[in-house]
Simulated assay, not measured.
Amino acid sequence: MSDFWVFGYGSLMWRPGFDYLESETADLAGAHRSLCVYSWVHRGTRARPGLVLGLDRGGSCRGVAFRVAGRDRAAVLAYLRERELVTDVYREVSRPIRLRREGRPEVAAVTYMVDRDHQQYAGRLPPDAILAHVRAGHGQSGANSDYIVSTVAHLRALGLTDPILERVVAALADT
């Protein structure tokens, strides 16, 4: 069985939770990173939803690609499905990504895109609503604010910035 790739754009970048052979930055065209998902499990609850990232259509996204050994395919996909598809707000898809290292090919990668028809799809919220959800959200995986701060730190380590996430982190620091 051949190796395969997984594309991470949020917490998968800094906490993949599975073994991999290599990782590197990669670009995905046709979707962008967005705080567009109400979190009812990992970073919030139904009564007090947090906000987490989703890949939403349009634009592009730079993230981290992980090459996984083919022999681990079933176990890694089972793990990712349990983690990412807990409420079915994401759809598992295969998309082409461009590996950033010189001379590397375009490869297909498994990733998780938001389902815009799902009730947890938040769309584009105003900044004050984003901040309110991030401040209030706390779920099985911890505080929503910790998720945002960690994601921004890892984006910065990759030399990337996300203006919306940067504004949220700045606002969190001001309080």
Rank of each mutant, 00 (worst) to 15 (best):
R46C: 08
R81C: 06
P127M: 09
S60N: 11
R48D: 06
T25N: 14
A153Y: 10
L51F: 04
Y121A: 05
S145F: 10
R101A: 14
F18I: 09
V86I: 13
D72S: 10
T161P: 12
I97P: 00
A129T: 13
Q120R: 14
M13Y: 04
R91S: 08
Y112W: 10
L53W: 05
V169F: 08
Y9F: 10
L172A: 08
H138Q: 13
D146G: 07
I97Y: 01
A69G: 11
E24F: 02
T87W: 07
L165Y: 06
F4Y: 07
Y147M: 02
L172K: 07
Y112F: 14
G8M: 05
A74L: 10
R135K: 11
S23N: 14
D72G: 03
S60F: 11
R43Q: 03
D56H: 08
D27M: 15
L160G: 07
R135G: 03
L55T: 03
G50W: 00
G137L: 00
G63W: 01
A78L: 07
E22Y: 11
Y79R: 09
D72R: 01
N144M: 03
V134Q: 01
R81P: 02
H154Y: 09
A75Q: 12
V168K: 06
D3Q: 04
V86P: 00
A69H: 01
V169L: 08
V76R: 05
A47V: 09
L35A: 05
V64P: 02
E92V: 04
E84Y: 03
A171S: 13
L99D: 00
G54F: 03
G63C: 03
G123I: 05
S60H: 14
F7W: 02
L77I: 12
D88L: 14
T175A: 15
E22S: 14
H118F: 08
R98Y: 06
D146C: 09
W40V: 09
A122D: 06
D174G: 14
R48L: 10
H138P: 08
N144C: 09
G30F: 05
V86S: 06
A75T: 13
Y90Q: 03
L172D: 09
A132C: 03
A171H: 10
L55R: 00
R57M: 11
T175I: 15
V41Y: 13
V89E: 04
R156G: 14
R98C: 12
T161G: 15
V37F: 06
W40Y: 13
Y79L: 11
L172I: 08
V149D: 05
I97F: 03
L125W: 06
L125F: 06
G59Q: 06
A157L: 10
R48I: 08
V52L: 12
G50I: 00
G139N: 04
R43S: 02
L35C: 06
R57A: 15
V41W: 09
F18M: 08
A122W: 02
S11G: 07
D128A: 12
R46T: 11
W14G: 04
A143C: 09
G50E: 00
G142N: 04
G142Y: 01
L35T: 04
A65S: 06
G137R: 00
G139W: 02
A157Q: 14
R156A: 15
M13A: 08
F4E: 02
D115M: 05
R95D: 04
